[in-house]
Design a protein around this nucleic acid. Sequence first.
DNA 1: GAATGGTGCGAATATCTATGCGGCGCTTGA
DNA 2: TCAAGCGCCGCATAGATATTCGCACCATTC
Lengths: 141, 141
Amino acid sequence: MADPDLRREAIRELLREEEIASQEVLLERLGRKGFHTSQPVLSRDLRVLNVAKQAGFYRVSEEERVTPLAALKSLLRSEQPVSHFVLLYCEPGAASAVARALESDGIDGLVGTIAGDDTVLVASDSHAASMRVRRRVRELL
Amino acid sequence: MADPDLRREAIRELLREEEIASQEVLLERLGRKGFHTSQPVLSRDLRVLNVAKQAGFYRVSEEERVTPLAALKSLLRSEQPVSHFVLLYCEPGAASAVARALESDGIDGLVGTIAGDDTVLVASDSHAASMRVRRRVRELL
DNA sequence: GAATGGTGCGAATATCTATGCGGCGCTTGA
DNA sequence: TCAAGCGCCGCATAGATATTCGCACCATTC
């Protein structure tokens, strides 16, 4: 029997490149690619792949976003709490990049950042929020 | 006849607060809220609302992102093309905020921005891209 | 008051999807 | 060896959803 994972990968691919409205059509497209199966299998595959049907067509879910923060690991030097803010020390010139990445990380309670050249002040709306910021940052150090 | 929009709002609400697996169930829940209708109407409503069915349950799509740019309307003064770049004039001190917002707006072909105190230079990779930037900016002026 | 056009509706039904079930092939362990 | 367990499969069909069609209602126009 063919590997189910190969078939599922083919399904993802097909759904990305074409608007497909029914499992019947998908079945036919898969056939062209050499995967011969049946509609019930597709029904199950689509559930496993967590594919959604929206506005009449199947949609593969967005790839889970890689937080840009992870890529900035090398720019971060250290971290220090000040009241319920957090101060970050970065490589020279890297502060605004780090600040921007932090803001896009969607940390709950993060109000804003002020970036100098190598220092970022992270303002949060509570002590708990600043703890979340610190935890997030330490994950990267 | 009851306003369809009210019913649709009720649907969104229901889907947010409960895992609902079929239109039949949704029909019943709506009934409890005082909206009496039929399955075909739900089918059409769910399409209008762009609701997805995923892993057996209905999911309201993420709230459409409000571009931060819209909030910066008051900070923008004027706009002017220079070659295939665009120069933006802003309120004093607002340039970097505007630049950041523009970058997060996901304009196709936008390469980067340089922000001074009240001026932003927006670099794009083609004339067409700079036109997109200008159109976007003028929407706000 | 017709005639016209637009919008929303729901019964009936066509179409699409999920699932109960039994079969096949592989692996494990007595 | 072979029986039990498991994953995967597809047929048949139950179940869920989309669409066709015709009606009701309201506004606009003549």
